[in-house]
């Protein structure tokens, strides 16, 4: 399935890019340490095209969730722009910001924390409809039931509370809530990570079906690269607050250009004993440095197996430039040379 095929024919605007992140920063000041800050997102450029699924991977703490919250305007940016459907949403406030949420939704990581324990499922699903005054009250009730049915739950569950459901069922409720207002773009932050394998497969299939049915665009964040590869058209890799490589899902696996991508991919076990006997993971030296004080030059250099440091790698920050396949960019002075 190619992104081009999936793009809705009815798209009026010629711009194939739905969302652009332009040089976005998010620094969380550490109180009491004059000027020090956690540089959670530290200069990210990213494009998400209409109808595609962009996968976002990286180790924990590298800034994926923070980036998701910048894109959905749940957090204000420290600097930079997020342009959604031609509009810079970082400057929006109040009512105008809420209007954007009609088109942009989010599925959260923790199926137990993301539903208000004191609201019935009916109220949870009706809340977005109420907020945007969609239809009459009767219509809304019906739509709530349709939504439940759509995600594979009994439509008569409206009066139940979240604690009466299993993790997988709760995640479906979270998905139904995101779909309630008919968004065109959904951010899934570790939406399947907390689920058991068989339930995870149910949710992954559901997300794919919904995308085909409603021409949705997804930003799919996960640390499980296998799941990301399965769901995504393109994949972006983050390291310490920056995107270090972006490419099509097959290109990135077959021809990774950044050494971090290569190491990350090589470390994932495959459910096949024959392959596993041959696989040789690339061990990275040391641990992820602190995002308070990232290394100079290329921030991967202390762990990079091919770094020239001291030298260009520890002195100059490599820009994100085309390398390898068409549509592939990587931020490395020696991209592909390993």
């Amino acid at each position: 399935m190619q992104a081009a095929e999936k793009a809705p024919a009815t798209a009026v605007k010629a711009d194939p890019v739905l969302l652009r992140v332009k040089n976005a920063y998010k620094h969380f000041p550490i109180s009491g340490f004059g000027g020090l800050a956690v540089r959670a997102v530290d200069g990210v450029d990213l494009e998400i095209r209409r109808g595609e699924t962009l996968g976002l991977v990286g180790e924990s703490g590298c800034g994926k969730s923070t980036l998701a919250r910048l894109i959905t305007a749940l957090l204000p940016v420290t600097a930079g722009k997020v342009v959604f459907d031609g509009q810079d949403i970082t400057t929006l406030k109040g009512r105008r910001l809420r209007r954007i949420r009609r088109k942009m939704q989010m599925i959260f990581q923790d199926p137990f924390a993301s539903l208000d324990p004191r609201m019935t499922v009916g109220d949870i699903l009706q809340e977005p409809l109420d907020n945007f005054s969609i239809g009459s009250v009767r219509d809304r009730r019906r739509r709530v039931q349709e939504l439940l049915r759509l995600v594979g739950l009994n439509p008569n569950f409206t009066n139940r509370y979240p604690h009466e459901f299993s993790g997988g069922q709760r995640q479906r409720i979270g998905i139904a809530r995101a779909l309630a207002v008919n968004p065109s773009f959904i951010v899934c932050d570790e939406a399947v990570s907390a689920l058991d394998v068989s339930i995870q497969a149910q949710i992954i299939n559901l997300l794919q079906d919904l995308q085909n049915e409603f021409q949705l665009t997804y930003l799919f964040i996960a640390h499980d690269l296998a799941v990301v590869r399965h769901l995504s058209d393109r994949i972006a890799v983050m390291y310490l607050g920056k995107v270090v490589e972006t490419a099509g899902r097959n290109d990135i696996y077959e021809r990774p250009q950044h050494p971090y991508t290569k190491a990350l991919l090589s470390s994932i076990p495959v459910p096949d004993p024959a392959v596993e006997r041959e696989r040789a993971p690339i061990a990275l030296k040391g641990e992820i440095p602190s995002p308070v004080n990232p290394p100079s030059g290329c921030r991967f250099h202390p762990r990079c197996p091919i770094a020239r440091a001291p030298g260009v790698c520890s002195e100059q920050e490599p820009p994100l430039e085309p390398h390898g396949a068409r549509d592939q960019v990587a931020a490395c002075h020696f991209a592909g040379q390993f």
Partner: peptide
């Protein structure tokens, strides 16, 4: 700080 509050904001709750 709870995710459900974030979720409510995300669905346009004033």
């Amino acid at each position: 700080e709870k995710e459900y509050v974030e979720a409510a904001i995300m669905t346009g709750t004033a």
